[in-house]
Design a binder for these strands. Sequence first.
DNA 1: CCGCGCTATGTTAGCGTTAACAATGGGCTT
DNA 2: AAGCCCATTGTTAACGCTAACATAGCGCGG
Lengths: 343, 343
Amino acid sequence: MARSPSDTRRPLTLRDVSEASGVSEMTVSRVLRNRGDVSEATREKVLEAARTLGYVPNKIAGALASQRVNLVGVIIPSLSNLVFPEVLSGISAELEDTGLQPVVGVTDYSPEKEERVLYEMLSWRPSGVIIAGLEHSTGSRAMLENAGVPVVEIMDVDGPGVDAVVGISHRRAGRQMAEAIVAAGYRKIGFLGTKMPEDHRARKRLEGFREGLEEAGIPLTDTEFYAGGSALLKGREMTEAMLARTPELDFLYYSNDMIGAGGLLYCLEKGFDVPGQLGLAGFNGVELLDGLPRQLATMDACRHEIGRKAAQIVAARAATPGPGGEIIELQPVLERGDTVRMR
Amino acid sequence: MARSPSDTRRPLTLRDVSEASGVSEMTVSRVLRNRGDVSEATREKVLEAARTLGYVPNKIAGALASQRVNLVGVIIPSLSNLVFPEVLSGISAELEDTGLQPVVGVTDYSPEKEERVLYEMLSWRPSGVIIAGLEHSTGSRAMLENAGVPVVEIMDVDGPGVDAVVGISHRRAGRQMAEAIVAAGYRKIGFLGTKMPEDHRARKRLEGFREGLEEAGIPLTDTEFYAGGSALLKGREMTEAMLARTPELDFLYYSNDMIGAGGLLYCLEKGFDVPGQLGLAGFNGVELLDGLPRQLATMDACRHEIGRKAAQIVAARAATPGPGGEIIELQPVLERGDTVRMR
DNA sequence: CCGCGCTATGTTAGCGTTAACAATGGGCTT
DNA sequence: AAGCCCATTGTTAACGCTAACATAGCGCGG
């Protein structure tokens, strides 16, 4: 397993293994990749030699020679959002035994950083790219179009994609929530969400939500936006601020579950009648909500499933090149929880 | 930016750019890497050509030729733990302008998977490896020893490392918490934590905690372990179960903040006198706690700082090879919050 | 016992880039 | 005007591996 004799720290190559086992480099390569016919005897001899030397193949050289790279670039805005790790887990699970490996890049919701990360990724010539969102800089879009590999844009289907798209309609999700709220009889509605101008999905949810309310002839009574900080705490603070400013509100729609949870905790503490006097809802369906004193109404964003489907598309096309352009719209499900009254 | 004429989808190479700009490949390479002297005129000509073609350099070939890879492998057990994304953010921040790029691998707390991920990473010949924990399989350890690149084991300093180590002493952290609890006058103490046998850091905290109690002549009255599921919910359920079984408990020490938060919510709901009759504490110092109705006592695990320091070590040694073996022990700080009484 | 068709192994020629060194040429010194 | 230097550009040979083809040996049918 080690390299005791003459440890000159010259990195090991196929040649070392080939010399140690008395066969050609090609044969060693074949053994190590399980490709082509090799007799059982040589196979074992080679594996033994590789193991005692502690040889680790050089994929850089391998990739250059074979023009194949078993990496899939995954570009997401953030890792601290909870949502994206879940998408990632779907991707990893699906890629598990395809021989492909996800490589993650984080953009911090910045189009410039996205462009840099994408450039960096493409320079490794991955077998595919999975990227969050449909909105990209001109440069990024051009790179995606010319990459010559499968591209899957995820999370969102409200808009044109470069190639394949897997996600939900956030606009529709917002609208559906509006309809449910109106149907439950709430009339004075407030929205609380992120300020981030680059969070297009939150924006689309709000737009859909507004549309849904408008159709019922109900205005959006108040809005409040935040940026940064502990989401749970922000939810709490924003709720307090909004209710102080607009006490007549009877429903609060939060752009994500975390601030919604903060709001819920605040309302319960204050002894408000939830959902009787005041209804609450969030978005995403994060696991965290299960542990709250009351179930916050939410809408599952199909995060794991989005990851799986996206990975499937990449894996399928890495195996057999096809035309591409698949559009998969998943349907988020409204989970009413305990914070929307029944009628 | 695009590739309109004769779009044969042959991947672009340096040669294409060199032909388009009328200089040699070498000169193009120099321009694109800002290396060596190139006249301003050619520089612009080349950049222009590269831009209009939409050329993206092939780092695989570059890395093979130069024997330099600007990647740092980061191997962590999980992304859904909240703790690790924070470590990652420290690493990214520090690596930001070193030209190095983190590449993340996830082990799911499995030594076998760790070994596979490590092998995969090393096969890309990264400039360094940052890996969580000190406990590895024999194979992994051998790979780390022979990798010939800087290795930084993070999170934990309780034990021997392969090369550099950055972390806190979880044993000491457990002991400190025990001392604080005893000093506050609590005597009937329960521990709630993960069952995962591979979470060595949680184990060490428990060991240290036990030691600390023993020294004060106080036994650990009850323990409860869980695996999987929503941590917040589990915390709630375990707390209920434990208090039903052992009602005389006056303190609950949770192995992480998430289950601690669940426990706190449960206790508040039940109207228990916290911290008077029942004290609570968690571990990690996650941001989430800020939004809770009451501040849970916890101990900051210095996650961001650990990431930064580890990245610093790798970056420094990638620039100037040194001896290695740095050991950096950070000191977690007890944050008493509102759930440990003052005396 | 010849040669066909295997299977097992070896040989050759890149993959696209960069390190190292070589060449070119114009200006400047003497 | 010869020679030299420097800035700039080009040439050559890897880097470590794999695709594609070549070869060696061996059993076996006719």
